[in-house]
Design a protein around this nucleic acid. Sequence first.
DNA 1: ATAAGTACCTGCTGGC
DNA 2: TGCCAGCAGGTACTTA
Length: 294
Amino acid sequence: MPELPEVEVVRRGLAEHVLGRRVKSVEVTHPRSVRRQAGGAVELGERLSGRVLRAVRRRGKYLWVELGEPEDSGGEVEAALLAHLGMSGQLLVQPAERLDEKHLRIRIRFDDDGPELRFVDQRTFGGLTVTDVTGPEALPVPVAHIGRDPLDPAFDAEGAVGGLRRRRTGLKRALLDQTLVSGIGNIYADESLWRAKLHYERPTATLTRPEGRRLLVAAGEVMGEALAAGGTSFDALYVDVNGDSGYFDRALAVYGQEDRPCPRCGTPVRRAPFMNRSSFWCPTCQPRPRRRHV
DNA sequence: ATAAGTACCTGCTGGC
DNA sequence: TGCCAGCAGGTACTTA
């Protein structure tokens, strides 16, 4: 469910509501939500309790909160609370007296007895872990292999174009692979390809440099616009930390728009199965590539 | 080494 | 009305 814009909305919400707060206790109500944590629920609680939540950071769809001590004032960070929302994860800031959500998986209480942080996740593909951070950028270990995303000021677009052209696969598969460019999921892949007028099965090896630049610019634009709209929500599964939905779904050109007119040319949008999901595209603006030599 | 297939979950919708 | 197949925003592991 959540792709970069939705995760960034959550990041901003956390920055607003949990920074500087000291964790009192952690309650795990579903083991799968901590399956990536060495030592499971016990170790998560031990590594989190007593720590103060510092900066909230994000790369692609990964989100983490740097952990500090009550007395320190922003020295070296060695650990972080890492979150991935998977397909249906939510991080909610809720008053303690609020009734538990049906799919509440992890609850984090704070010393100040203010609103608690809840991880709610219907499908349990997401999870929380406390991990060490590594390298000059202090990235959590599981994030070290994730590429920068198009909204990162240090994103290297030329490098990413070169990387795309070196792959031997289809364009959309390459966009969904988070190692080259991160943050793009099924919705924004289709929207980016539509903006750049490229077919999702275009072989990456035949992509020209200008086409590659166009695609990455489109990806940055569409995700930036979605962020400004508060993200995309089709239903209550994607919400910000206050439980509110975004409204970028109204601006989607092709995703979920089968048989509706392409906003650019009016041709009915098509849908086809792709990687156990769906791809949506305009057959006029994004013609299927003719088989050509590389 | 890279790319593709499969597994992991719950809940909702639509067709029969 | 009920049942079941199909589908949903993602990643990680295995296999070729």
